[in-house]
């Protein structure tokens, strides 16, 4: 039994290895981009909308609303990153009901890659917002003694992000496979349907957590600005 689609290698040339994870990632990417292009090539700005445009607009509005709630800031600048995480993970998880499709999110390499992106995005948004020095000072607040804990926290939450998603998706496939061996008829179908729900929930959790982490980096910065303004002597 394969734990990860990484192991099914399709093409290898030295360092360049094309495995099932990468292939299915490309497939998902292709589907998403093609679908988006088909819908957005003739958008309506009037009161009458096509069903597909309405569907996409509701998804985007939903993401914007959630991101706005989490970050308490204008959500547009976080939309490409957090929205793509949600849409990609959700699409990958939902497509896992298709026979023969191996969800890229079921590979620890993919989830690690996404978690690393979050790990980089958090300081990137923070530094873009308040500058490098100010952001780095967050690690020694309230005392420099907190530095190791903060760093450990960063690493552990990244690891947790990666493993949570991988574990959930992988376990869904594993349970499906095991149940297929034990009770081959109805039960695996129910578990697969349950897997759809789990997949969506996991996509939501991953995106929301990423939003929370990014917002946490900004929030500290905002709070420090408020403190400065309250204490004129420190200016």
């Amino acid at each position: 039994m394969q734990l990860s689609p990484d192991s099914s290698i399709l093409f290898q040339f030295g360092f360049l290895t094309i495995n099932a994870t990468i292939l299915f990632t490309w497939l998902v990417m292709g589907l998403l981009v093609l679908g988006s292009w088909l819908v957005t090539r003739n958008l309506s700005t009037g009161p009458v909308l096509s069903r597909r445009q309405n569907f996409l607009e509701s998804i985007i509005s939903f993401i914007l609303g959630q991101v706005g709630d989490v970050t308490r800031q204008k959500p547009e600048r976080f939309l490409p990153f957090l929205g793509t995480i949600f849409i990609f993970v959700a699409a990958s998880n939902l497509l896992s009901v298709v026979p023969g499709f191996q969800a890229p999110t079921g590979s620890l390499s993919t989830t690690t890659a996404l978690a690393l992106c979050v790990l980089i995005a958090v300081p990137a948004y923070g530094i873009a917002d308040s500058g490098l020095g100010e952001y780095l000072k967050n690690y020694i607040r309230p005392t420099p003694m907190m530095l190791p804990f903060n760093i450990t926290g960063e690493i552990s939450r990244t690891l947790a992000l990666a493993v949570r998603l991988f574990g959930n998706v992988m376990s869904g496939s594993m349970i499906g496979g095991i149940l297929l061996a034990i009770a081959p008829l109805i039960f695996p179908v129910i578990m697969q349907l349950l897997g759809l729900l789990t997949g969506l929930v996991q996509a939501y959790i991953f995106a929301i957590l990423a939003g929370v982490y990014i917002a946490a980096g900004l929030k500290i910065h905002e709070e420090s600005i408020q403190q400065h303004t309250r204490d004129p002597a420190s200016i």
């Binding site: 290895t17 495995n19 957005t40 690690t112 690393l116």
Partner: peptide, 25 residues
């Protein structure tokens, strides 16, 4: 379980996907 070349590929794929979705969606 972690295949680092795949991780790097996926990071690149993800960044490309962000760019494409930003452009088309």
């Amino acid at each position: 379980l972690i295949d680092w070349p795949t991780v790097i590929f996926q990071i690149i794929n993800f960044l490309i996907l962000i760019a494409l979705l930003k452009r088309f969606l």
